[in-house]
Design a protein around this nucleic acid. Sequence first.
RNA 1: GUGAAUGUAGCUCAGUUGGUUAGAGUAUUGGUUUGUGGUACCAAAGGUCGCGGGUUCGAAUCCCGUCUUUCACCCCA
Length: 460
Amino acid sequence: MIILPHLVKGMRDRTALEIYRRNYIISTIQSIYACYGFEPLETPALESRATLTGKYGAEGEQLIFSVLKSGDFTKEVEQKIPLTDYKRIKPYITDKGLRYDLTVPLVRYIAANQQLLTFPFRRYQIQPVWRADRPQKGRYREFLQCDTDIIGSSSLLCEAEILKLIYDILVKLGLQHFCIKINHRGILTAISGAEASSEREKIFCTTVDKLEKIGLEKTIATLSSKGFSEQSLQLLTSFSDPKGGNMPLLAQLDHTIGCTASGAKAIGELTEVITQAGRLGLPDGCWAIQPTLARGLAYYTGMVIEITIKDSQIGSIGGGGRYDQLGSLFGIENLCGIGFSFGIDRLYDSMESQGLFNGISASVTDILLINMDAKAESQLLALLSRLRTYGFKAEVYPDRTKLKRQFVYADKKKIPFVVIVGEEELSTNCYSLKNMQTGLQNSYNWPELCQALETSLNIK
RNA sequence: GUGAAUGUAGCUCAGUUGGUUAGAGUAUUGGUUUGUGGUACCAAAGGUCGCGGGUUCGAAUCCCGUCUUUCACCCCA
């Protein structure tokens, strides 16, 4: 019976080229983290059901991949629940699931290791997460996230540092046309006029979050039907398409909602964050205040940010914000923090469409040694070893087959140099070196061979 | 989870109102070339037409179901 080699829905294999490119992104990011004093953390792919549930809302929870219990759980289920009741059966047959994001595992980790950690705790985490979403352009069921968090400080300097960190990473990767969109939940609270009701505020945020997608008119209509005041709608309209730059916009915000408690706080905080970020070297022009930016996740309490790329089909390549109550779910009160997450796969897609991987090829081998003559074998293997010791990336073709096949192999793998040791070379005591790009071939002794390879390959 | 499109050789795609043995390009293998790759020429091999059922004398083609991929919604990185 032949098993069809199908991939599981939404899952992807990665080729050598993709891995080299992704590793380049990751190592670039890591070098920036090191400069900022962030430490790496890794957590397991599986978390307990208790950890995962109740954190992402009803829709989010549906997207968690559940893993069956290991033992025989059938009897317990049979006795307690009718087999037709899928939703009630689930807790009895599954007790763990694949992680849905990196923030919840982080908070779980902190809750368990509070005494061991030094606060403020700065960590980054680069690991895959899984969501049982329907795959689409830029949307995968398994994707690599890169989370950055500073836990245990309410200082606005953290916000400023995160902004500059994001900027440094994107600049070092060479990404063009990115924009860091910035807002504050307090601004939305003030516009919504729902200071007293966090429930109303949530409704307002999730509706406004879709503004860019469904347009202003539909958003206004939806909000109106949900009973938000004429004044709120007018305010929202006036900020929906901001022009004239960030500072005039802040002044306009101050003028209109500066009189409300949440508005004044938000504007004050944003102003300070921006000032601090400027002192850290964040240039104007790479960020923009967007008063309608809400972000879907409910737990944000302060600044929220999102990275978008101009004229890009995929959504944001990253987002985050300040949260103040996340720890309470694990029994820690007043655990405040700020977090940001890059979608590495989307970053990859953006970089690819901007042609930023041109220097990175899949070839690892610089020199192929042709295997052609049994008499030359000891000479050949000694050469292979010497080349590697010297620091060249070399391999020998394992089978003693016809030369054509071996040259085709070098050609396909884009190996730039081929060395031949055969009867002719043995008799003249030299090596033949062929440049596969120019097609030129010359004879060298060992020092000459090293020199020729060194200059061509730009080693050392 | 809701709605739509798609599936033919390893890959990209043709395939007439349902009618003989399902084609092309490219890739593969062999040869022209047993000490030399890219180009060219010659030849060969490669398909349960996604899968299952139905209609029909006859189905890649029509109908139903199912799965895959893609797109939109929901939501998000």
